[in-house]
Write a protein that binds this DNA or RNA. Structure first.
Length: 186
DNA sequence: GGGCCCGCAGGG
DNA sequence: CCCTGCGGGCCC
């Protein structure tokens, strides 16, 4: 099948990413040979290609230099996905990452290293790669797999009160203009 | 389809 | 090293 051959070629052409060979700066921005709207079968592949290097966590980055990438999968009830604008929720305040209820059960804070990283991105205005996972609540999410949707700028980062009444870290992201349009489901 | 549980790659 | 985190597979 042609699609499978194309996929095999893609996997061969995109060298497996070894972060140890890269400087900190190389972790920001676009990834070589991975165009916007490239879709990965799962989080592991997405991590191996260097797009979002965490296999589980939603935020990948350094608490000193800022975030490299985030994954929007709809795991947090206070998220809002409007395509070019995203309201994203920080990490923490949930019982554990594998039994997400969607509801917060505790407070978040910028003391958490991942939340701190994304807050720094709001100051530096360095672009952050955004990956969308399958999310039935968003018309902009892929049906399956994880799609690299290009670069966004973190406009604001602040503490807020979430739906469940707990403190959350809230981030307002805006897509960098001039990138391929994101397909809409409905 | 839901519940359960195992796991890996980062970053500090 | 150690711990954590918006998966995923397997069983039923």
């Amino acid at each position: 099948m042609a699609a499978e051959r194309l996929r095999a070629k893609f996997l061969a052409d995109t060298a497996l990413y070894d972060p140890k060979h890269l400087g900190q700066d190389a972790r920001f921005g676009p990834v070589e040979r991975i165009p916007v709207l490239t879709t990965f079968t799962d989080r592991k592949e997405c991590a191996q290609r260097g797009v979002h290097r965490a296999t589980v966590a939603g935020i990948s980055g350094s608490s000193k230099d800022g975030a490299y990438s985030i994954c929007v999968s709809g795991g947090y009830e206070d998220d809002e996905d409007n395509g070019d604008k995203i309201i994203y929720t920080g990490t923490g305040g949930q019982p554990d990452p594998f039994s997400f209820s969607g509801s917060q059960t505790g407070d978040q804070s910028f003391n958490h290293k991942d939340n701190a990283a994304l807050k720094i991105s709001a100051d530096t205005k360095k672009p952050v790669r955004v990956v969308r996972g399958p999310n039935k609540n968003s018309p902009w999410a892929p049906d399956k797999g994880y799609r690299y949707d290009g670069l966004y700028i973190v406009k604001e980062a602040y503490l807020a009160k979430g739906q469940s009444g707990y403190v959350i870290c809230r981030y307002e992201l805006e897509r960098v203009p001039g990138q391929p349009r994101i397909p809409r489901k409905w």
